[in-house]
Design a protein around this nucleic acid. Structure first.
Lengths: 297, 297
DNA sequence: TCCATTCTCTGACTTTAGTCAGAGATATCG
DNA sequence: CGATATCTCTGACTAAAGTCAGAGAATGGA
């Protein structure tokens, strides 16, 4: 990554925190301390658990409590204990609180509109397109990867969604039953591993690795949630699996894929996988790939 | 401007202040109050006048003074009176201050790099392109227009730059002498007006309007500073002049231009000016344009 | 049932941020 | 020269943001 690129990002960060950030801070408080305004905003019409608010806004429990007392005193929110766990309390907006929130909403709209107003129609389109692009890419950059057991709840959800998708897309359908217990065992250490991709805590993709030879591994169960496609989730998962494979001393990775999964095939090619002859008996596979891993990442 | 566009801008603002803003604030303070960090940063290796710092950071004189005392106590800056006007004092970084600033610089670089790192090469390119686009458009949106006298200092500077540019670009050169006093008089109320475009307080473009008939006006002296081109400065100035013309009851605008000013010609066409036959004796003109103004903007 | 844990609240802080009214030094204008 | 304005500094504030320790209620597991 060269210095020019870094400089561009810095210029952008600077501009955007200056202009957008400063405007937000000054406009969106409505004569209220920023902390309270943010809290009101983050509570939303739905209400929220204190715990969630503390995590999202990174607030000290004491501080949060005090802010809530203040909002309560203003008649904007009520706090009551949750019904499942009575330690966890929930905030809800009162009618007045919802009115306040609506006012913030209007302000926020005005602020956004004021960024567009001075521009011509073509420039607006360009601005919006660029914003969408950045939004998408920043979220991509925020994909978190972690190694989990394929039996964990999140992993199971991903695998089920994956199987459902295969059943819908494969020409002859796909029957995974309850998955493949043997494969799942092989995707846990020491024989392999299973990687989950998360965005904002939500699982949006997965992929597994199992050893199939002395120094050969196989990639299985690569999947990306439909709402997260086009953000490089699969690519990141694949890189992670490759890194783990290298750590495990493997020098070759193989994988197979069905002919209807065109995007997947293109991705594997981009990532340096070469098509090879059939190496297994998977009845659903039409293409087989292999990549030699270089020892240093 | 439709609701979807506003929503996109809001999403973007939110994302960006959250991610970029929060990171900046937390990373770039190095155990120092944010105020001091910003001040150190804004002072820069060059040093700066207190006055300039106060304007840029919007600080109360008392507050600024106290922040400086604190930085002085830490041995990071020295404050001394300017030599021209001894009321105006200047801050300079000490050696330690420069080291601190360099550390901030490195942090800032790391922060930027961390946004790029998780992305692939193609995605990086896309991100950078989108950032450049937004930077450019936000700056465009920040162009301030104001009606000034063509005799004001800022206007004179623009006009001089304009004349110099014409002299350099016109095939046979251009001799404006001291400008055209008669034209300048006509570009002031009630016969016309002169509009200046500023970005961050710096004049970056201008344009004038004078009445040449009962309900006909003429656009003159349209110019954009080289460093601000491609941001729609001229378009905004032109729109402003058109609005002022409409207010003054004009229904037709004319203008002429030299054949070497290709960009200008393209811009006039885009803005609805049709090429017409010669309507004046300007020896430097090769193209003549006209636009009918609709009564409502 | 008891013990450790989790969650929220309160009180008692500290630090930052920001404001305001003078005072004193310096410059500018008539 | 004197009057006025500009610029910075100091002291005396207030408000907001953030921290910390401890108490009390609720929960979960041994």
């Amino acid at each position: 990554m060269d210095a020019g690129q870094v400089a561009q990002v810095r210029r952008f960060n600077r501009l955007v925190t200056r202009r957008v950030g400063a405007l937000e801070v000054n406009h969106l408080r409505r004569g209220r301390p920023l902390g309270e305004a943010r809290l009101l905003f983050e509570t939303g019409t739905e209400g929220a658990e204190l715990r969630a608010l503390r995590d999202r806004l990174r607030l000290d429990p004491g501080y949060l409590s005090r802010l809530l007392r203040s909002l309560e005193a203003q008649g904007l929110v009520t706090v009551e204990s949750g019904n499942a766990d009575r330690r966890r309390r929930c905030v809800r907006l009162t009618k007045e609180g919802r009115a306040e929130l609506a006012a913030y909403d209007r302000l926020s709209d005005e602020l956004a509109a004021s960024m567009l107003k001075p521009l011509g129609a073509a420039q607006r389109e360009r601005l919006l397109a660029a914003m969408a692009e950045i939004e998408c890419l920043i979220r991509t950059a925020e994909i978190e990867l972690c190694v989990v057991s394929p039996k964990s709840a999140a992993a199971r959800r991903c695998l089920c969604a994956y199987f459902r998708e295969l059943a819908a897309r494969f020409e002859g359908g796909f029957d995974a039953g309850e998955g493949d217990p043997k494969l799942e065992r092989e995707m846990t250490p020491p024989n392999g591993c299973f990687v989950l991709a998360r965005i904002d805590g939500r699982a949006v993709g997965c992929g597994g690795l199992r050893r199939i030879g002395e120094r050969t591994g196989e990639i299985k169960r690569m999947w990306t949630a439909p709402e997260a496609r086009g953000r490089g989730v699969a690519r990141r998962v694949l890189h992670e699996l490759e890194a783990l494979a290298r750590e495990a001393g493997l020098n070759t990775l193989r994988l197979d894929t069905n002919r209807v999964l065109v995007e997947a095939r293109a991705m594997y090619r981009r990532e340096g996988y070469r098509e090879i002859a059939r190496y297994n008996r998977n009845p659903y596979a039409h293409h087989w790939f292999e990549k030699k891993l270089e020892p240093t990442a």
